[in-house]
Design a binder for these strands. Structure first.
Lengths: 203, 203
DNA sequence: TGACTGACAGATATTGAAATCTGTCAGTCA
DNA sequence: TGACTGACAGATTTCAATATCTGTCAGTCA
C-alpha cells in the first residue's frame, strides 16, 4: 500500500549489504547463506528468492567492491591536465586505492582476493573497465600529440600489463617493500618514454 | 678406506636428490623428513646430521630447481647477437623455461610455488641472478650504442618488473590465455622503444 | 671415533562420526 | 496471490581422539 519506509521488504540490495557484512566478519570460508539470512532476520530460503546461488551472491558482492575502486578513477580520467600527467595521476590513484585497502583491512582484502579467484568473469570485467579508462586518457594524448603510439586500446592494455606488479592483488605482499615506489618510478619512466617517443629515424 | 663407489655413505647431495623425488611424488603438504629418510634407507635422525631443519632442506631443493632455470640462460647472455635481439631472446628463453615447467608438470610447478612462498631469501637470490643477467645484456647495448638508458642495472630491474606477468609464477594461470603472446609483444614493444629511444629533443 | 639409530616431548596432521550447509519445494499466511 | 517459511536430501565442514611428524640426544656399533 504505502511505499515508503517499508523496512520489512527484502530486497536484493539489502541482501548484498548483509552479505558484505557477514563476509567482513566471518571471512570467506566461514560466511554462509544461513548467516546472511540470520543477519536479515529471514529464513535462508527467502534469500534464494533473490539470488540464484551462493556463488552468484559472492560475485555480486565482489562486483560492488570492485566498482568502489574503479568508479572514483573516472574523475581522474575526465581531468583537465595533459594526458601524460593525467595517466600518471590515474596510475597513482589506482595504486593508492589498492594499497589503502590492503593496509587498512588486510583480512578483508584477502577475503575479496579469495572471492576473485572464483569469479574470473567479474574480474575480467573490472580489468576491462580499468583498461578502458587508461585507453581514454591515452587517446586524448594521441589527439593532442603528446603520445605517439598508434592504438590507444592496445597501448593501454600493455601499460596495464606492464604495471601489474604494482596493482595486481597477487603482488599485494610486495607493496610494503621499501623499494616499491622506486621500482614503479623505474617502470613508469620506461613506459612514459615509450609512449612519448617520437617515431624516430629507424633503429 | 677406498674412496670410490661408496654408495653407502650418506651425503647432502643424496639427501637433496631424495627430497626432490619425495616432493615430486607426495607434494609439499605430504612430504616428510621421515619419507626422505625412508627413501634413503636410513633413520630420519641421520638426515638431520646433514641438514639443519626441514625448512633448510626445502630451501636447498628449491635453490637447485631455480638454478636449473637460470643456468641455461647464461648461454643466451653470452651470445653474440646485438643486445636488443639478445635481450628479447633472453626474455623468450626465460618465459619458455617457466611455461615448459607448468605445462609439463603442473603439480610439480605448484609444489615449487609453495616452497617459494616460504623461502623469500632464496627467491630473492634467484631474481637477483636473473636481473643481473638482463643487466649484462643491457650494459652491452649501452656500450654499443643500441640502448640509450643511463643505468643498466636499474633498467634491467624495470624490464624485469614490467614483464612480471609473463614470468612470475603468481601469474602462471594466465600463461595459457590465448592472448598472452600478443600481450607480451605489446609490452615488449613499449619496453624496446623506451630502451632504444634517442634521448630526444625535450618533450 | 664418529656415522648412525631409535626413543622421546611437543607440535602438527589425519580421520570419521556428528553437525551444519546448500539449494529445493510444498505449504503457510497476510 | 505471492512473499516467505521450514523440513529435507545430499554435500561439505567441524571437532576431538588418534596417529604421525619434527628435532634432539644418549647410546650403539663398525
Amino acid at each position: 500500500m504505502d511505499d515508503a519506509a517499508q523496512d520489512s521488504v527484502l530486497t536484493r540490495d539489502k541482501i548484498l549489504e548483509a552479505a558484505e557484512e557477514v563476509l567482513r566478519r566471518f571471512g570467506p570460508s566461514k560466511a554462509t547463506v544461513v548467516d546472511v539470512a540470520r543477519a536479515l532476520g529471514v529464513s535462508h530460503g527467502s534469500v534464494y528468492r533473490h539470488v540464484a546461488s551462493k556463488a552468484a551472491l559472492r560475485d555480486a558482492v565482489l562486483e560492488r567492491w570492485l566498482h568502489r575502486i574503479s568508479d572514483p578513477l573516472e574523475a581522474v580520467v575526465r581531468g583537465r591536465e595533459p594526458a601524460p600527467e593525467r595517466l600518471r595521476k590515474w596510475m597513482d590513484a589506482l595504486m593508492a586505492a589498492k594499497r589503502r585497502r590492503v593496509l587498512k583491512e588486510p583480512e578483508l582484502f584477502a577475503t575479496y582476493g579469495i572471492l576473485a579467484a572464483d569469479a574470473r568473469e567479474v574480474v575480467k570485467g573490472h580489468v576491462d573497465t580499468l583498461v578502458d579508462q587508461a585507453a581514454r586518457i591515452i587517446a586524448d594524448g594521441i589527439k593532442s600529440g603528446a603520445f605517439s603510439v598508434k592504438d590507444a586500446g592496445s597501448a593501454a592494455r600493455s601499460v596495464f600489463d606492464a604495471t601489474a606488479r604494482f596493482h595486481n592483488p597477487r603482488h599485494a605482499a610486495e607493496w610494503s617493500d621499501p623499494g616499491i615506489d622506486t621500482a614503479f618510478d623505474g617502470v613508469w619512466s620506461l613506459l612514459n618514454a615509450a609512449l612519448t617517443a617520437r617515431p624516430a629515424g629507424k633503429r
